[in-house]
Amino acid sequence: MAKYRQSLPQMQGGLFLSDGGMETTFIFHDGLELPHFASFVLLANEAGRAHLKAYYESYLAIARGRGVGFVLDSATWRANPDWGAKLGYGPDALRAANQASIRVLEELRSGWETPSMPCVISGAIGPRGDGYKAGFMGAVEAQDYHSAQIAAFADSAADMVAAYTLSNVEEAIGVALAAKEHDMPCAISFTVETDGRLVTGRSLREAVEIVDDETGGAPLYYMINCAHPTHFEQALEAGEGWIKRVHGVRANASARSHAELDESEVLDEGDPADLGRRYQALRRNFPGMRILGGCCGTDHRHVAAVCEACLAPTALSA
Rank of each mutant, 00 (worst) to 15 (best):
M289P: 06
L42Q: 12
I125G: 14
L105H: 14
V266P: 00
G196Y: 02
E113F: 10
L32P: 07
E206M: 05
H146A: 04
F26C: 07
S317H: 13
L43Y: 00
A176H: 08
A38Q: 00
T200N: 03
L267E: 07
W83M: 13
W83L: 08
P313T: 09
Y221E: 03
G288F: 12
V211P: 00
A139F: 08
P272E: 10
W242K: 05
P115E: 02
V169A: 05
G111C: 02
E260I: 10
W77D: 00
A75H: 07
D144S: 15
H36T: 11
A63C: 09
L15N: 07
D130K: 11
S122I: 06
M22H: 01
A309T: 09
F26M: 14
C119F: 11
T314W: 05
T314I: 06
A50H: 05
P9L: 08
A281Q: 12
Q280E: 10
F232Q: 04
A187T: 13
E170L: 12
R245Q: 13
G31W: 05
L204D: 08
G294A: 06
Q99S: 10
G123M: 07
G135A: 00
G48I: 05
R64I: 11
R66V: 08
C226N: 15
D271F: 11
G31A: 09
R245K: 15
G69M: 05
D92W: 01
C186G: 04
W83V: 06
A315S: 14
G69R: 03
A142E: 05
R278T: 03
D262C: 10
V211L: 03
S254W: 06
R103I: 10
G217V: 13
A304S: 09
I210R: 13
L275S: 02
T194S: 15
Y145F: 10
E209N: 11
G201A: 07
E141Q: 06
S156V: 03
G69Q: 04
N168V: 08
F232M: 06
A2G: 00
P287W: 15
A151Y: 06
A259C: 04
Y56N: 04
M11A: 10
